[in-house]
Structure formats: C-alpha cells, structure tokens
Amino acid sequence: MEWFFQQLINGLALGAIYALIALGYTMVYGVLRFINFAHSDVLMLGAFAAYFVTPAIWKIFPAQSITGALLITLVTALLCAGMGILIELLAYRPLRKRPKLTVLITAIGVSLFIEFTCQHKAVFGSKTRPFPQLLPMHDFHIGNLLVNSNDIVVLGVTVVLLVALWFIVQKTKIGTAMRAVSFNMQAASLMGINVNRIVSFTFGLGSALAGIAGILYSMKAPGIEPLMGIQPGLRAFIAAVLGGIGNLPGAALGGIVIGIVETYAGGIAGVSNYRDGIAFAMLIGILIFRPAGLLGKTTIEKV
C-alpha cells in the first residue's frame, strides 16, 4: 500500500511535467494542424536559459529565495516565448499555405538544427551541466510516505498554470480569437481577427509553458544537456495524442496518465526494461478503441 501511494506521488509529479509540455504541442496543433517537432527543444532551451540567468538573478535576490525562483521562471518563460515566436516567424510562417507535410519536415529540420547547434562546443557543448538548486529542499513525511518539496512545487505550478491557461483560452478576448482561429482560420480572418498575431501568441504561450516545464524538469533531474528535451518531448507528444490532439484538458489528462502508468511500470522488475515502449503501447491500445483520443471528438468526414 505504501508502495502504491509513493508511486502515485512519483507518477503525478512526472505526469504534471508531461502535461505542461503536451499543452504546447496541442495548442500549436489546434491552431496550425501540425506537430511542432521543435517544441521539445524549446524545453531544453528553457532549462539552459534558467541555467545562465540564475547567477545574475541571485546577485540581486538571495540564492534559493522564492522571489528569485519566480523571477528566474518569468525571465525563462519570456525568453522561451520569444524563441517560439521567432521559430514560427522564420521557419513556419513562410510555409503557412503549403502542405502540412512540408511544414512537418521543416519542423524536424528546425529541431535537428537546434539540437546539433547546441551540441557544438561553441554553444553549449554536449557535456551535462549541473542545474542550480532554485529552492531549498525539504522532505515531508506523511505516515511512511516521503514527499519531496520539489514534487509539491511541480504539482502546484502545473495546477496554477493549467488554471491560468484555461482562463486565457476561455475568458479573454485573445483566447476567444485563438479558439476562432483553431475552428476555422479563414473565417476567423474574415471576422477581423489578425491570424498572424494569434498564431504568434499561441507559439509564445506554448513555448513559455515548455520553458517552465524545462525548469521543473531540471529541478527534478538537475543535469542538463542539449538532447534532454527529446525523451520528455516524445512522451508529451504521445500524451497530447492520447488525450485527443488539439484538446487542452485532454493534453493535461494524457500527460498525467502517461506519467503515472510509466512510473508504476518502471517499478515492476521485468517490465521496467520495456519502459520506452509502454507509453506507446498504451497509446495504441487507447486509439484502437477511441480513434480520436481520450477527450477528442471524432469528426465526421464531409463529402
């Protein structure tokens, strides 16, 4: 029983991060209908941004203070948002009217470009760097369970961001515009919505979430390197599809489900060696019964 709850905590903390990344995938898909392969690299850039920003901020605010951590997160989120907007502007916007596959291959190209450039020794190099501890760590004992303050931070931040995102998408003007663009880009632009601005905003928002996820992920595993985004990126991508791609609550749910299942599976001897395949197996199982994902709506093909 203790084992069960401990794994639940581990799984939730992992799943929350997947959920944050999956939101970015799903938002971009909702608006532009293509999978932004470079999203996982924005996560990595976020981790590195925080790595380089931290010493500067710690000069002003005391190290490991909450204000410091918040400020680091804010700066990172802004930098990543800028990065996401830039990627869209340079690489995807010129191809907006082209077949989606063209954009997909470009996205793969962008992803490879970011990874190999960052691996170059003049940029970050391929060495793993120690990520600074942004907040002091505490262990909380609940009965026999051990909860680390990091896990609570990760879960708390995810919940706050999810609520904020829901608010932006559902209650604000720009969110309404986002939904309109996602529904029908052409009709939206006829209604006077500046589609380019909305797309930029979507990329910025998604990338900011990826950047924050990058920080949370690095707090959990404080070793950062240029390829660190690939593995969580792939899982989050699966999570987005699992939940029904284009569907925001679906992405969050998918992330949590994958995090939990993966953690339980990882804890069973003889199953843990299949861990790379487990998320996929689950995805395939679910898609066969619900072809549009857990919360996705099946669209009826119009003739």
Binding site: W3, M228, E262, G266, G267, I268, S272
Partner: peptide, 20 residues
Amino acid sequence: ELDYNGGDKDFKGQLTAIKS
C-alpha cells in the same frame, strides 16, 4: 533487478521499487 534507459531523467518509479 530493475532497468532504466540511458538518458532517462526520472528514476523514481524504479527506485521506489528498489527501496521496498
């Protein structure tokens, strides 16, 4: 006897099992 995949960043599932 538990396994991870080189490059993984989350090991808590396996480590919890080891601890038990």
